[in-house]
Computed example of a mutant assay.
Amino acid sequence: MPYRDNDPISNIPLNSAPFGYSPEALQRESLYAELSSAGVELGTYDHRIVEWIAGWDYPTVATIASLIRRAARTPK
């Protein structure tokens, strides 16, 4: 299944840009949620960059969040 219930972030590789819109606050929340789920510890500069990326266009942010999600579940 490519998406979780009511979750626009893909669980599978993307072959085209995600479609839609999400306000910056929700994009920020999504990025932080994926990083947290992946167990990524963030420093001050990391937070600054997440804040910056959250302001980018939806297709880019959704793709980055999807990459984080998929990387986190990849066996080590």
Rank of each mutant, 00 (worst) to 15 (best):
W52K: 01
F19K: 15
I9R: 03
E29V: 08
W56A: 06
E41R: 14
I9H: 00
G20T: 05
V40W: 09
L31D: 01
L31M: 10
I53Q: 00
F19L: 08
P59E: 09
Y58G: 00
I12M: 15
L67H: 05
L35I: 07
E34D: 01
Y21R: 13
A33H: 08
I68M: 04
W56C: 03
Y45I: 09
L42I: 11
D7C: 11
G55C: 04
P2G: 13
T63H: 03
T74R: 10
I9M: 01
L35E: 00
W52F: 12
Y58I: 02
L35H: 04
D46H: 14
V40H: 11
D7Y: 08
A25F: 03
V61T: 09
S22G: 07
L67D: 11
T60L: 14
D46I: 07
N11W: 06
R70A: 09
L26D: 11
D7N: 11
W56T: 02
E41T: 14
D5Q: 09
N15C: 12
A25K: 14
N15D: 13
N15E: 12
S22M: 14
R70H: 01
P8I: 08
V61A: 09
D46M: 11
R73T: 13
P8H: 13
A33S: 10
R69Q: 06
S16M: 12
P13N: 12
N6K: 07
L26T: 01
A38T: 04
P18H: 09
R70G: 10
T74P: 02
L26Q: 11
R70T: 01
D46C: 06
E34T: 11
P2T: 06
I49S: 02
P13F: 13
S30V: 13
Y21K: 12
P2F: 01
I9Y: 06
A38D: 06
P75C: 03
A72M: 08
K76V: 12
Y3H: 13
S36I: 01
L26A: 06
T63F: 03
H47G: 03
A33P: 00
S10Y: 05
L14Q: 10
M1S: 09
V61S: 00
I12W: 12
M1V: 06
V50A: 00
N6E: 04
S10P: 03
A54G: 04
L42Q: 14
A17N: 15
E29K: 05
P75H: 11
Y21L: 12
R70D: 09
P8G: 08
P59G: 12
I9C: 00
I64P: 08
L26V: 02
E29C: 02
E24L: 02
P18M: 06
A54W: 00
E34Q: 14
V50T: 00
D5W: 09
T60H: 10
Y21T: 12
P75R: 10
T63P: 03
R69H: 05
A33I: 01
P13R: 09
Y45L: 13
